[in-house]
Design a protein around this nucleic acid. Structure first.
Lengths: 237, 237
DNA sequence: GCGTTAACATGAGCATCACTCATATCCGAA
DNA sequence: TTCGGATATGAGTGATGCTCATGTTAACGC
């Protein structure tokens, strides 16, 4: 819902042609990232493929990092939207099913959405191509925000759907779970182009075991918001 | 024990002066990495600080990535050696203590060893400055090797010290645990310069919960290799 | 239609980077 | 001393991220 490129753009495109251009640049960035990786990706090539002059590129994106960060945010939004839609259309027996569903969806995104496997919720999102520097506090804070956004929205979804108790530690636990799952799934995709099934299964186990401290099974049965048993997708508020 | 710069050097320094030079370059690389991050790090500046001509730099390191990878491997060796020494000098009551000890040691390394927080067991080790590319299989395999090396040596240490059963799944579980813990600790250090204590504690919980499937408490008491109760450091085989 | 003004578009050019290679220097053997 | 090959060096090369002076379009009052 929120604009995917929220604070990362130098100038927000207003006219229709400009919007399409920015979108095209992000599309080509994603494809090129999958082809050559971040370091080999050049702004000139992105601009060339998107059929946009390099000068125009730099009117919208502050720099190479900004481009990739904007893509990361767009991917993030896409994932969260798909998650919300997916969770809304299913009646879950217990919260562990929700964990499996979220991870399956994440894996599916990695398999199909260009650039999703490379630029996602980890530090790449923050400082793509470079590890976090103690100097650049601002960027770090932003990354932390992004991380919190994912975990927070997941928590909202889980609470909404499963009626889990609003533990104080749940928020932090979800952040930790997201971070850990992200890392393990990265490993799974490093080991196998489509994601090593064993490692994906192991990832689910990891998250289930960890979250079982915070999410009790009893909370699931007490769920109030899962009223409809229908399988059709329901609209989130 | 094994040379830290394993296959990453273009030419192995033979004379004493050359060895010192390579060591100095790695030292300055680590410091500079902490100061400005990978992307801002320039080979010229590393060479300048190490008081080595740029030409000489490229006689030993194939490229910028090779330099950072060599540093990563040196840090890796340092960590594993310290782990072995630390575990050898302590009698553990149960395996969860070993988990805490390993994580504490890891955190201590992140706090004190230059470049350790930035270049470590994650993908940065593999493709520093760039996420994994589907193209560059060779690098990916190497990264996987590195990851396996850590987990494998940890497994050896744990089995040796705690007499844990040699489960088939233990190896993979340790790889997953290392990957997850690494990610969560990165997060902890992004949130706090010295590492957020809450997140560090959460990391221990995560690993303990996960590994409890593979390491039973009873296995600890049946430990055979922990004969000596002395606290002096013992030599690993 | 016309003039004015501001926003937008463009790509040659600049500073800087990773990396090379022709040359200089060293050093042991004869 | 002379020679030959290994080593050391830094000016130079091509490429990259990014800028900015200039050209083009759009909007609006008259």
């Amino acid at each position: 819902m929120t604009n995917a490129a929220g604070g990362t753009l130098r100038r927000r495109p207003s006219q229709r042609r400009s919007v399409e251009r920015v979108e095209r640049m992000l599309d080509e960035c994603a494809l090129l990232l999958d082809e050559v990786g971040y370091e080999q990706l050049t702004t000139k090539e992105v601009a060339r493929r998107a059929e946009v002059p390099i000068g125009t590129f730099y009117q919208f994106f502050p720099d190479k990092q900004g481009l990739v960060r904007a893509l990361a945010l767009r991917n993030l939004d896409a994932f969260l939207d798909r998650m919300a839609a997916r969770l809304a259309g299913v009646s879950l027996k217990n919260w562990t099913e929700a964990v499996d569903l979220v991870i399956d969806e994440f894996v599916e995104m990695k398999r199909t959405m260009p650039g999703f496997g490379i630029v996602d919720f980890g530090e790449i999102l923050t400082t793509p191509g470079g590890p976090a520097l103690p100097e650049s506090r601002r960027m770090l804070d932003q990354s932390l925000d992004n991380n919190v956004i994912v975990a927070d929205r997941l928590r909202s979804l889980i609470i909404e759907l499963l009626g889990a108790p609003r533990n104080e530690g749940l928020g932090r636990a979800l952040i930790v779970a997201v971070e850990a799952a992200d890392a393990v799934l990265k490993l799974a995709f490093r080991a196998h182009p489509q994601g090593d099934p064993d490692l994906i299964a192991e990832c689910k186990r990891l998250v289930r075991r960890y979250l079982s401290e915070h999410l009790s099974d009893s909370a699931v049965d007490a769920s109030e918001s899962v009223d409809r048993e229908s399988e059709g997708p329901a609209e989130p508020s």
